[in-house]
Every structure is written in C-alpha cells, then in structure tokens.
C-alpha cells in the first residue's frame, strides 16, 4: 500500500532519468518492455541492497546518518555520468538515421546494432534504486523497525511492486515515432538533466566536504 500510495512521487523522482533514457531507445513496445524490465529488475536489486543495509544499521541510517549526503551526492554524480553516456557516447539507434541515405546504408563496415544494450538500463535502474527519494526513506524507516532481515527484504520487495505499477505508462513511449529531431530533443534533454544531476550531486559533496 505504501508503494502504491507513494508511486506518483517515485515516478516523479525517477522520471528525470527514465523519460529521456526511454525516449532515446528505438521505437517498439517490445524493446521498451525489455528495457524497462531490466531497469526495474536492477532497481529491485538496489532496493534489496538498501533494505539489507538499513536493517543491519537500524534506524540511524535513514534518520541522522551523517553519510547520507555522501551517498546521495555520489549517486547523483553517477546518474549524471550514466545519462551523459546515453546522450552523447552510446551508439544508439539514432546513428542509424545518420548512416542512412536514400534508404541505403552509406557507411563502411558493419551497421550499428539497433538493439540497446542491457548494461545501461541495469546501471540506471540500480542507481535510481539506491537514490534516496522521500518515499524510499519512509519505507526505510519502516523496514528498519522490522524484527528480521527476510521481513525487511520482503517489505522492500512488496514496496517495489507497488511503485513499479506506476512505471507501466512508460511503455506507451514505444509507439511514438522516432525522427531525427525527436532523438535530438531527447538527447539534449538527457544532457541537461545530466548537468542538473552533476551540479546537484557535486554541490552536496562539496557542501559535505566543507561543512562536514
């Protein structure tokens, strides 16, 4: 119930990562379903890791743990790097447009693989999984109070299912036609969001380093 209730907040928190990343994927609901599944599975792994940590550390980890800023800042910087790689360096399907001229491939060598790799989805999913958003902290407090580790893991797994329901609308992005302009916009947005995460994460880390 907590996952379902806080789903919109989870969606809003992960939206800046998921939306531009999904938009630069090739067209097709099946491709999107596959990528989203990998993303969510990696996110679940992040959740379970956090559940285990939080159960061992107790409530302190989510309430007054001084290292929270380090984790939050580092995760944001890593997310920025992930988004930048997707937007700039990853040889995604957009390259197919660049290499196509009058319906013929004009580049020399093997054509680029239009299928997106699972590593990007897994990395972004894991990082958003351990990104400390408000619903996540609420769930963390509840999980830390549970009597056993399996109970904490189960709690986070069910919490994950509740929030994951809200991600299914992203599949509809698979039917949107990918034009070169569309892909350029998605990549530019990913760069801007990467800049934001980088700035935000770096600010947190600098602040922590100066003021402790």
């Amino acid at each position: 119930m907590l996952g379902l209730a806080t789903g919109p907040i989870c969606l809003a928190s992960c939206g800046p990562v998921v939306l531009p990343w999904m938009l630069v994927q090739p067209r097709g609901v099946r491709v999107h379903a596959r990528q989203l599944s990998i993303f969510l599975a990696a996110r679940l792994a992040g959740y379970l890791l956090f559940a285990a940590l939080i159960w061992f550390a107790g409530l302190a980890i989510s309430r007054s743990w001084t290292g929270r800023s380090w984790v939050f800042g580092s995760v944001q910087v890593a997310l920025a790097a992930g988004l930048l790689i997707y937007a700039v360096a990853w040889p995604h399907a957009g390259c197919a447009f660049r290499h196509t001229h009058r319906n013929r491939l004009v580049h020399i060598g093997a054509p680029p693989d239009p299928r997106p790799r699972p590593t990007g989805a897994a990395a972004l999913g894991f990082l958003t999984g351990i990104n400390l958003c408000p619903p996540f902290l609420v769930a963390g407090v509840r999980a830390a109070q549970l009597p056993s580790l399996p109970a904490a893991l189960l709690f986070f797994a069910v919490f994950f299912v509740g929030t994951a329901v809200w991600f299914t609308p992203f599949l509809s992005l698979g039917v949107v036609r990918r034009t070169p302009s569309f892909l350029t916009v998605a990549r530019l947005a990913a760069v801007l969001l990467a800049c934001w995460y980088g700035f935000s994460g770096a600010s947190l880390l600098i602040e922590k380093a100066i003021y402790g």
Binding site: A12, S13, G15, L19, T184, A186, V191
Partner: peptide
Amino acid sequence: WAILLFVVVLSAA
C-alpha cells in the same frame, strides 16, 4: 523542446 522536457520533468521531481 529539450528545455521544455527538462523543466517539466525536473519540476515534477
């Protein structure tokens, strides 16, 4: 359009 996408998504977050 990219800035629109950026501000809308980040404002929600």
